[in-house]
Amino acid sequence: MNREEIKPFIAKRVAKELHDGDVVNLGIGLPTMVPAFLPENVHVTLHAENGIIHAGGHPGEEAEPAYVVDAGGKPASVQTGGAFIDSSVSFSLIRGGHIDCTVLGALEVDEKGNLSNWIIPGKIVPGMGGAMDLVIGAKKVIVAMEHTAKGRPKILKQCTLPYTAVNCVDLIVTEMCVIRVTDGGFVLEEINPEFTVADVEAATEAELTVSPNLKPMA
């Protein structure tokens, strides 16, 4: 798989996890590519934690960047039927279980479903922003990321970096496979036909239980 194919491939697979009518919060970067792969009959409502329900993309010439931005600080828009809300309501929606799914990247995920994605102490300290609230509040948490960081495993027995939250990840989608987090650890459910199970195991530090219904990832 060429490098430039990786992110769209992951986004396309994540799109299959979303259902018509879902309220979804997407992290910055790769997750924002997901809506482009939704089938025509699936419409989701995008929530931007800085205060948009039914968020739309960059409105082009009609942009008012002084007044309407997304959670990445970029010019954004609101779609018909949407709303602007304040941060208190926005995070009440998040913690209160009103967001069906959040898709975000990770530095590390471990077999307890613990997630680390906001800090590399002493190196990169961007802050957690809304991530800690999103992963404890959203009904479904999908980690969408490249399987390794320059060959170094990110799917671990035990996270080494500070947690974003514990026991929060439901599904991991990478360019190699789809892994479900269960009470019994990681279950390999789908595999990109370009790779073997041995390839995936070699790129994963944690134990993987191969599902008896292992499917090709597409």
């Binding site: 002084a66 304040d86 941060s87």
Partner: peptide
Amino acid sequence: WYKGTTRNFNQV
């Protein structure tokens, strides 16, 4: 009255 997403933390 706040416009667009400028309400954010201003209201609280």
